[in-house]
Nucleic acid binder design. Structure first.
Lengths: 137, 137
DNA sequence: CTTTTTATGTTAAATTTCCTTACATGCATT
DNA sequence: AATGCATGTAAGGAAATTTAACATAAAAAG
């Protein structure tokens, strides 16, 4: 729980995040606009990102490089969020499945179509998916 | 060693550091000028601080609140740096003691005089000495 | 008890970074 | 051919940061 706080502490400015992720600021703002991340703001309205935000951005980048579109990314992050919420409160809560934004059929079709690609491009000198987790234990 | 990289990765802008440490930017710059920290710079000449920098600033703050002056802080950080350097390369290196900037007598006198005070003031909502270490394992 | 040093505050001007908005565009999808 | 998605780019303004200078209270030195 104290870990939760650390992961969500607003620490990084836009410039550092673009360096860390090698995303353009345009991309980062677009992803925020699409509801994929929720950085807080300074008094002067500038974005401050947390470890979690950077982590999500790396996941988003990874997925989009595989051809997944925003809708797909949104769906996958939503699932992951649910998992984490479950882990956070381990009470076995009998709950009817929350309706996904997209039907299972739609999502399946979507992913099936998109996962037939594979853009490959060497990368380094910045964070890659999974590398961030080492910042905490 | 990979840990060393993480600890020294330039991540934080001035604003975040002043929030984290509750030091004024003036203080942070002064401590840099005195050689206590060495933040790197962006292309545009703005400071970028690492975890290590923030950690040192918290130590500096803690010491100065106890009345230790810059010279004393400098000495104590130097000692700690030596320790860490030793731990990093555990080769039993027979080395004659490096001459301190201040003689032992001077330092002793200095600390003895200064440690007779104790400014107490409640603090919260920011990092305190030792709290930062949890960001890594 | 003056004088000097230390550590920090404050202000100003210049520079850099970031913000929003708007328009442009290549590539898929329809 | 027309539309939508994801991103680039440019303009204008606001916020954050920088250096340099001057001010000052408290401590140290003489």
């Amino acid at each position: 729980m104290s870990d939760e706080i650390r992961r969500n502490m607003p620490l990084f400015s836009m410039g550092i995040v673009t360096d860390l992720t090698e995303l353009s600021s345009r991309q980062v703002r677009y992803y925020e606009q699409q509801g994929l991340i929720r950085p807080v703001r300074t008094k002067g309205n500038q974005r401050l990102f947390s470890f979690n935000d950077v982590d999500r951005l790396l996941q988003i980048k990874s997925l989009m490089e595989k051809g997944v579109n925003i809708a797909g990314v949104k769906e996958m992050l939503r699932e992951k969020d649910q998992q984490q919420a479950q882990e956070a409160q381990p009470e076995p809560q009998p709950q009817e499945v929350t309706k996904p934004d997209l039907s299972d059929a739609e999502l399946h079709k979507l992913l099936k179509r998109q996962l037939s690609e594979l853009g490959s491009r060497p990368n380094q000198s910045h964070l890659i998916r999974g590398e961030l987790s080492r910042f905490f234990h």
